[in-house]
Design a protein around this nucleic acid. Structure first.
Length: 289
DNA sequence: CACTTGACCTGTCCGC
DNA sequence: TGCGGACAGGTCAAGT
């Protein structure tokens, strides 16, 4: 589910809530959600303090005081929800939350902190995970070391974007945007939104996209991601932030999940097709093949 | 090399 | 009300 803006929203929430706290325990009833040995949990996680919360693409990185990091990928339906000690004694959950009492049936991992609070990793579809790495080895993880640039960093210039597009000249643009090796953090929602904003058909081959439109796409990606972070991300189904609250970007979306409705720009009907194996939304008038 | 399909899982929605 | 199939925001491996 969560793409860069959602993961960034969770990161900011966790940064406020759990940095400086010590992990007392971490446990799971689904091995694949926490593929870490008991030995490692006892030696490298328990009684260690959380010193930082980072993000790379869609991956959350919780830094510990022993040069290790917990790597968390939410995949399609993951949530990281913090609950203070008061929740154990009946405190209500936020009104704009999708979830009630925790743990619930999608809870895969529970982390207990030293102030009595708990962090719940909920993941309906069990695709996500919490793993551990030595910081010095993080860049050796294939998924991370091949990952493309962060689209919201200063280093992500138009020149870099253009060069990376050129490497994938024969591919369909939507597939390229979804490829984490090209640019980190874009998923199905923001690929569709960026392409609509830049007026590019998702099935267009990169080499068929004009210089002006490539420039527009570069700018659209940055604008769309920044706008979504401002709105706290998109809650289409499962996504909630670190406090369990929904994001509001989906109600600002221009094409995503708007099939059958009118294009805000030209009034024609938004359609849904398949591109790169994914449901893909576009305006057939603004975005011509 | 580029693209598709299947796998990993659970839940929801739609049509019969 | 029940049942089967399609589909869901991600990624990887294998096949064409």
């Amino acid at each position: 589910m969560p793409e860069l803006p959602e993961v960034e929203t969770v990161r900011r929430g966790l940064e406020k809530l759990i940095v400086g706290k010590k992990i007392i325990n971490i446990s799971s009833d689904w091995q694949k959600s926490l593929p870490i040995t008991d030995n490692e949990i006892n030696n490298s996680i328990k009684n260690h303090e959380i010193v930082s919360i980072g993000r790379r693409g869609k991956l959350l990185i919780i830094g510990l005081d022993n040069s290790r990091s917990l790597l968390i990928h939410l995949r399609m339906t993951g949530q990281m929800v913090y609950r203070s000690e008061s929740y154990r004694f009946g405190a209500g959950h936020p009104n704009d939350s999708l979830i009630g009492k925790l743990p619930d049936k999608s809870t895969r991992v529970i982390m207990e902190l030293d102030n009595g609070s708990r962090l719940f990793f909920n993941d309906q579809r069990k695709f996500g995970f919490i793993n551990i790495s030595e910081n010095s080895k993080i860049n050796q993880i294939p998924f991370l070391n091949k990952m493309g640039p962060e689209p919201l960093s200063q280093d992500f210039t138009y020149k870099i974007f253009k060069a990376r597009m050129k490497n994938r000249a024969n591919s369909q643009i939507k597939a390229v945007l979804l490829d984490q090796k090209v640019i980190a953090g874009i998923g199905n929602i923001y690929a569709d939104e960026s392409l609509w904003m830049a007026k590019i058909h998702p099935l267009k081959k990169v080499l068929e996209i004009s210089e002006a439109k490539q420039r527009a796409l570069y700018e659209s990606i940055i604008e769309v991601l920044n706008t979504s972070i401002e709105k706290g991300g998109s809650t289409d189904r499962n996504y909630v932030d670190a406090e369990g609250k929904k994001g509001s970007y989906i109600s600002f979306a221009k094409v995503f999940r708007r099939e059958g409705k009118k294009c805000y720009r030209c009034g024609k009907t938004i359609i849904k097709i398949r591109a790169a194996g994914r449901g893909t939304h576009l305006c057939p008038n603004c975005q011509r093949i």
